[in-house]
Design a protein around this nucleic acid. Structure first.
Lengths: 363, 363
DNA sequence: TCGAAAACTGTAAGCGCTTCCATTCTGATT
DNA sequence: AATCAGAATGGAAGCGCTTACAGTTTTCGA
């Protein structure tokens, strides 16, 4: 709401009056539409400058029937991924003249209402799969709002973009098996998000390919606390196992003590590694551990955490682009994009080539 | 832009027609303003429901002369701080019916233009100090846009919120001195941000209080790469020193080899520690290192990184609140808030009480 | 039963901008 | 000098909403 130093913001009428032209001409000059004489251009520019004038978006939006803004709905902003996603998104949007209106659903008591409200001030919405239930997404579609879902299985009428998960999980798991691990456990609840379910699917596929029994996932939240708690549980079971001999099945998912943990994210993995080591279990010798996301800590801890890197900024960029294509009507058919991920081998999986701080090894 | 399944979005006229009432009554029902009969309320609610109607924000904004949105300008979203800040902000804003329009300036070729544009679609703007030059901020003020600056020295006519820096830096530095360190170096460029300059000021004050000479800061960017490079330089100087005896001054800031590094952020500190250890220098025995921000990695590395935690979410929350107070006119006088920080002692400074993983110790 | 007050509803005037359409102006071409 | 195409400009109609104001109905006390 810019204005001269005094009073209310200047309007296009003020500019027109000062430039002694009609508002139509002022608009044409400012938007660069239609033919205008050099003289008019100059007068308008000067008047606008002098009055500190900027067109009111609400009025423009109302007239052109478009907001020139995107809505972005994220579950939260913890961890680096959402930040990177957001940066990639904002960057693309900014370069294409679209504003980004952000909404975070975690802790929001009325996500449906909030998103509906959001829909009334943007031209389309990008929804992260962990942020909203399918119902809300379908409501949006029903209201004819262009929607792109991220990290979510394709939805009729929506574009989708996500990162590849199953294949990398399978590859990672296979690598652990190749190096002699026998009792792997998947840590993290596949029900918590589509991505995690895909990771578990890849994990299961790798085991299945060897004819191994696929253990149930350890259904814990994807948090440090849960990782630590789970590791404590393992330690307790191990201690109990030691006391009673190697006899009966312990309480931790697998019938035997695991020699490898495939964790659904780095938080889980980092906390688990630390807790295990504190408890006297050697990583990677006694048990290997892998994570997902490649957070900064993953390359600073010792042993370095083997993990999977996702192109979050690129994901954001692509989501913005796909939404814009829809909004502008330059594409009608839905697209479903999957971006490749990258397995980053470090010492925690016991199979890293070399021993330095492997920045990235693509298998 | 909601709508019925077919055609264009429903307008208030459609609702009025269906409910057989005037648009005025429809508006009153939907906004809960003015008196309406139960019958009218019901008819309108049903019609709105049936038509999937949501008022167009642009039209409302135009009519009420307010956007009900805040602009937030951040330098980037790397690291956890900005994410936390943003979450705190969005949370408060959401709870108070304000949308958040985000702009990231890093890499933006025309920040001034972008921000000006932003100003035309929001009621006020929160600017992070690292995101924009003072000139742009003053431009906004000149255009009568309510502005709150974050992590920036107070600006005439703007509210400001920031975290305390100098005192914690002084406290941290004093602690190192108390434990026998003699040659401390400040790593990071005070010119890069107000916060960093404050941290250096605190560092300098602590040294000055002991009558020690205050070394020039090591003016490097606040990145992992810079931290590693600086540490490499230290190692080289040390090696050279060994070769030539302990004679001449080396190239690294201090006249003598430092026995402590006060780094401007955790990225610098983490990279420095890793590089030093790889080079055979013991941390904290040979040299102590501290960071700033308390990123996740700080508590997973070994030795744990001593650092300073800032209440970023709270900072965001407060910024949102201050802006809203200004926008709504409920406060006219500028306020300048400073939030307390918390020194987190871990092993890297060689003075942590106990040896476990100190979650947080407030001195 | 009447009248006044209260409750409710509708009419219409904007909010500031874009854009269609008509009009005026320019200068080149006959 | 008359004509005309095209460029430049202005008038005016919306875009969908809020809200003063006026009009209509209801309620309720006397």
């Amino acid at each position: 709401m810019p204005s001269g130093p005094t009073g209310k913001p200047a309007t296009i009428y003020d500019v027109a009056a000062l430039a002694q032209l009609s508002i139509a001409t002022v608009s044409r000059v400012l938007q660069g539409t239609g033919p205008v004489s050099a003289k008019a251009r100059e007068r308008v520019d000067q008047a606008a400058q002098q009055l500190n004038y900027v067109p009111l978006r609400a009025a423009r939006s109302l007239a052109v029937q478009r907001h020139e803004a995107h809505g972005l709905v994220l579950p939260d902003l913890a961890g680096p991924f959402y930040g990177d996603l957001l940066m990639g998104y904002e960057r693309w949007a900014g370069e294409h003249g679209q504003s980004v209106v952000l909404t975070v659903t975690h802790g929001n008591p009325h996500p449906a209402k909030t998103v509906r409200d959001l829909a009334s001030r943007v031209d389309g919405i990008v929804v992260h799969g962990n942020a909203l239930g399918l119902g809300v997404i379908q409501d949006l579609r029903r209201a004819n709002v262009p929607v792109v879902v991220v990290a979510h299985p394709p939805v009729t009428g929506c574009d989708s973009v996500r990162t590849e998960s199953a294949a990398s999980a399978e590859q990672l798991t296979t690598r652990l098996l190749d190096h002699g691990r026998q009792e792997l456990l998947f840590v993290g609840d596949p029900a918590s998000s589509y991505d995690v379910s895909q990771r578990y699917a890849g994990f299961a596929k790798a085991l299945g390919a060897r004819g191994l029994k696929v253990p149930e996932p350890e259904r814990v939240p994807l948090t440090e606390a849960a990782g630590a708690a789970f590791a404590e549980q393992l330690l307790a079971a191990t201690a109990a196992g030691r006391r009673t001999g190697s006899g009966g099945p312990d309480r931790v998912g697998s019938a035997r003590r695991p020699d490898g943990l495939v964790c659904a994210n780095d938080e889980l993995a980092l906390a688990a590694v630390q807790t295990l080591r504190d408890g006297g279990v050697a990583v990677p010798e006694d048990i290997v551990v892998t994570g997902w996301d490649d957070v900064m800590a993953a390359r600073y801890v010792s042993p370095g955490l083997t993990t999977v890197r996702q192109p979050m900024a690129e994901l954001g960029r692509l989501a913005a682009q796909r939404l814009h294509e829809r909004v502008s009507g330059e594409r009608t058919r839905a697209r479903n994009d999957v971006l490749p991920t990258e397995v980053v081998l470090r010492q925690s999986c016991g199979t890293a080539p070399g021993d330095g701080n492997n920045p990235a090894v693509n298998d």
